[in-house]
Design a protein around this nucleic acid. Sequence first.
DNA 1: TTTCATAATATAGCTTGCTATGCAAATATA
DNA 2: TATATTTGCATAGCAAGCTATATTATGAAA
Lengths: 128, 128
Amino acid sequence: MARLFIRAIQERIKPLGLSTGTFPVMLALWEKEGQTQRELVQELGVEQATMANTLSRMERDGLVIRRSHEADARVQTVWLTERAWGLREPAIEAATEVNNLATRGMSEQQRTEFTTLMSQVIANLSEV
Amino acid sequence: MARLFIRAIQERIKPLGLSTGTFPVMLALWEKEGQTQRELVQELGVEQATMANTLSRMERDGLVIRRSHEADARVQTVWLTERAWGLREPAIEAATEVNNLATRGMSEQQRTEFTTLMSQVIANLSEV
DNA sequence: TTTCATAATATAGCTTGCTATGCAAATATA
DNA sequence: TATATTTGCATAGCAAGCTATATTATGAAA
């Protein structure tokens, strides 16, 4: 299911210059810009090394820039570029389309039940 | 959810010398040995190149051997080693444990509903 | 003040997914 | 029969996940 979902969304956001690795980071930064790498790691639940590499690719591709923290030289804050801000609407539209496609034929109640159950699985597997 | 699931299962089957990439291939071959690469690709829904690489690693690690087809020189059939056969019970046990862990706190009815809904999503996204 | 531990990030090296492309064998067609 | 197409598999190269380890800056302790 995850592979199919990734394929469907990749297909639609690739023309925007986004991918399934960068999209969650964009969502987090659209919500709150200037977060540190550590904050993004905690929020998105990937390993620190994964985030470091993803941010490097995003910087290379002109989606974000990293500014060093004024108070702590170890820390870098992450900021979106102009281009990255412009992708917000079409990217979210693409994601919504895939969600609708994935849950086609379900009642509203089934959709809710499905996300509730997935959240429960996430909670169960998180506390291991 | 997929990442958490992968982590949980990886942790338990790694001591057996298996991984989330090889496990589905093992399941398919435990069920029916001697399948061709093309058959495995169709059954598991990954790309041909992915399967070729996975089978190479499995051969390297002594899980399978590839024998050339007697009638068609392009085709290779895949066979499990002694060691691979011995992993069947503990691997399935590990997977069952993770399934139980993931669905902890759900009623039997909710579990059924969950798998039904996931199957529907898979069907929906497959026919795109 | 020097040293030690901790914290934030980067890097190396692996797996597993992908697309694109190459190659050899088998099959179809001219 | 000679050529063209199709089929089965391999390889190259990338993304994104992981673990393990290195590097640098900060803060705590001696």
